[in-house]
Design a protein around this nucleic acid. Structure first.
Length: 464
RNA sequence: GGCCCCUUCAUCUAGCGGUUAGGAUUCCAGGUUUUCAUCCUGGCCACAGGAGUUCGAGUCUCCUAGGGGUCACCA
C-alpha cells in the first residue's frame, strides 16, 4: 500500500511548484492503487487564511486531482499533539526552555559577530535549578549531540548531515501550540504515509523530523525531495514568470491537461515522450526517476502543449469551455465548422475566443495595410461579380460547396485564387490573415457574406 | 558565512565506460495553403573548467567555478 499526501499551509494560493509536487504524489498513489491525502498545515494560527485554503481546493478541483477521505486540519488536532509533547517531557526526551526571545536574539547576534552559525546553546537541556519567574517556557526536543543523521532520499540518494547541524529545536511555542516539524512527523507517521514527496526546500527539515520519529519510536516513510522550479533566467520563480495562482492559468486560457503535462515533464521524463495523457502518466511515472537538478519554467513549451491539447479537443468540449470566455457557440448551427477553423490557430482559449469573435463579428474597420495590398486593380469589380455569383449559388452549406463556387469563379475569369481571395478576406474579416474563405463563408452564410462584401465595397470606395 | 544539493544545446530532457551525443520547445530556411496558422522537411545550438582512474569518460574519483536550498516561538 502506498500512501502519499499533499500538505500545504494555507498562507497563499497554490502555485505550479506546489501543484507539481501534488501531481507527483497523486500519480504515485493512484498508480499503485494507494491513497492520496490532503492535509492542511495550519498550526500557525496567525497566518492562516480562508481564501488561500479555498483557492487551493479550487485549483485541485480544476486540474482534477482527487484526494481520499476528508481534508485534515492540523489546527483541529492540538490536543492530540499535546499528548506526544507530554510523553516526550515525561520520558526526558524533551525539556522546557526558559530563554526569552530577546535572550535568544542576543545569543544569535553574538554568534554571528563571532562568525559562527547561529544556534541554540542547549543551556536548559539539563537544567535542574529554579526556573526564572514570569517566563512561559517553550518545549525543545533533545536532538543527538554527536554522530550524524543519515537517510536515503529517493531522488537525491544518501544524505548525511552532522548531528551538530541540528539544534534542540522548539516543538511547542510558549503559548503551547506545537510547531511544524513536530506535527508533520507525527501526522505523517500516524496517517500511515509510506512516501513523502515534497519540495527540495524541505530537505533540511528531514533530519529534524527524523529526530521526532526516533524519539517517538515511529518508522519513517520514504522521502523524495523534488528540485525547485526556476524562472526562465534560472532564478527563483516570481509571480511575473509563473509563480502565480494556478487558477490564473485557467483565466489565461490554459487547459488543465496541458498544465499537468507541462509540469510532469519538469524534472521527469520517459524517453523521448513529450505528450502524456493522464493514463500514460499513471503508467510510467516513478518518483525514483525524478531529476536531481532544478528546472526552469518555459512558457513557450507550455503554450505549445496547450495548443496541442486545444487542437485535439472535441469541439463540444471547447464550446463548453468557451462559455467561460464570453463566447457562446454551443447553439450555433455551424459550430463544428467554426471551431475546426479556429482551433488550429489558437494557443490559448483566450485566443480561440478572439478568433471566433473576429469571424462572427463583422469588421468595424479595415486594416489599411491589407486594403492597400489587396485592393489593387480590379478588386472592386471582382468582388461585385463574385457577390452576384454568390446570390445565384443557392444556399451552399459546406466549406467545400463554397470552394466550388470560388473555383468556378476564378476559372471562368482566368484569374489566380489570390485575386479573389485577398480582397474577399479584407471584406469579410477586415484583415489579411485568418481561416480559409470557404470556411468563413460557410460559417457566415450567403446573406451575411454578401452584406459584408457590400459594406466593404461601399466603405472602401469612399476612401479611394 | 556554515552545512547540504545541483551543473548535457537559450529552455525541458535522453544518455546509465565505446553514440556522427538523440528527442522536444524556441529560432532560421524550404514545402503545403488564396492569407495566417496548422502540418511536413531540413538547419543552427550542448557535455561549466581542470586534474586523475581507464585501452577508452558526458558517464567513475577529486579539485575549482557557478547556481540553488537551508540556518525562526514560519510552514
Amino acid at each position: 500500500m502506498v500512501v502519499t499526501r499533499f500538505a500545504p499551509s494555507p498562507t497563499g494560493y497554490l502555485h505550479i511548484g506546489g501543484l507539481r509536487t501534488a501531481l507527483f504524489s497523486w500519480l504515485w498513489a493512484r498508480k499503485n492503487g494507494g491513497k492520496f491525502l490532503l492535509r492542511i498545515e495550519d498550526t500557525d494560527l496567525s497566518r492562516n487564511s480562508q481564501e488561500a485554503l479555498a483557492a487551493i481546493l479550487e485549483a485541485f478541483d480544476w486540474v482534477g486531482l482527487d484526494y481520499d477521505g476528508d481534508v485534515i486540519y492540523q489546527s483541529e488536532r492540538f490536543d492530540f499533539y499535546r499528548q506526544y509533547i507530554d510523553r516526550l517531557l515525561a520520558e526526558g526526551k524533551a525539556y522546557k526552555c526558559y530563554m526569552t526571545k530577546e535572550e535568544l536574539d542576543a545569543l544569535r547576534a553574538e554568534q554571528m559577530a563571532r562568525g559562527e552559525r547561529p544556534r541554540y546553546d542547549g543551556r536548559y537541556r539539563d537544567f535542574t535549578g529554579t526556573p526564572p519567574a514570569g517566563v512561559e517556557p517553550v518545549i525543545r526536543i533533545k536532538a543527538p549531540t554527536e554522530g550524524e543523521i543519515v537517510f536515503t532520499d529517493g531522488v537525491k540518494g544518501q544524505i548525511r548531515i552532522a548531528a551538530s547541524e541540528v539544534d534542540d529545536f522548539i516543538i511547542a511555542r510558549s503559548d503551547g501550540t506545537p510547531t511544524y516539524n513536530f506535527v508533520v512527523a507525527i501526522d505523517d507517521a500516524l496517517m500511515g504515509l509510506t512516501d513523502v514527496i515534497r519540495g527540495d526546500d524541505h530537505l533540511y527539515n528531514t533530519p529534524k523530523q527524523l529526530v521526532v520519529y526516533e524519539a517517538l519510536g515511529f518508522t519513517p516513510p520514504r522521502f523524495y525531495h523534488v528540485p525547485m522550479i526556476h524562472n526562465e533566467q534560472g532564478r527563483k520563480l516570481s509571480k511575473r514568470d509563473g509563480a502565480m495562482d494556478v487558477m490564473e492559468y485557467k483565466r489565461q486560457g490554459f487547459l488543465p491537461e496541458a498544465l499537468l503535462n507541462f509540469l510532469v515533464r519538469l524534472g521527469w521524463s520517459h524517453g523521448d515522450q513529450e505528450i502524456f495523457s493522464r493514463e500514460e502518466m499513471l503508467e510510467h511515472f516513478d518518483p525514483h526517476e525524478i531529476n536531481k537538478s532544478a528546472s526552469s519554467y518555459n512558457l513557450d513549451k507550455l503554450l505549445w502543449l496547450n495548443a496541442h491539447y486545444i487542437k485535439n479537443s472535441p469541439n463540444e468540449k471547447l464550446a463548453t469551455l468557451l462559455e467561460g470566455f464570453g463566447v457562446h457557440v454551443a447553439g450555433h448551427d455551424r459550430m463544428e465548422i467554426l471551431l475546426d477553423a479556429v482551433k488550429e490557430r489558437s494557443k490559448t482559449l483566450v485566443e480561440l475566443a478572439e478568433h471566433i469573435r473576429m469571424i462572427l463579428e463583422a469588421p468595424i474597420e479595415y486594416d489599411p495595410k491589407a486594403v492597400k495590398k489587396a485592393f489593387k486593380g480590379e478588386a472592386f469589380e471582382i468582388l461585385e461579380a463574385f457577390k452576384a455569383r454568390l446570390l445565384l449559388a443557392g444556399e451552399p452549406h459546406l466549406p467545400s460547396d463554397y470552394h466550388k463556387v470560388m473555383e468556378g469563379f476564378v476559372a471562368e475569369r482566368e484569374i489566380g485564387f489570390g485575386k479573389l481571395g485577398q480582397p474577399l478576406r479584407v471584406a469579410l474579416l477586415g484583415r489579411l490573415s485568418g481561416p480559409g474563405m470557404d470556411e468563413v463563408m460557410a460559417i457566415l452564410g450567403v446573406e451575411e457574406t454578401v452584406a459584408r462584401i457590400e459594406r466593404a465595397i461601399e466603405t472602401l470606395r469612399d476612401q479611394e
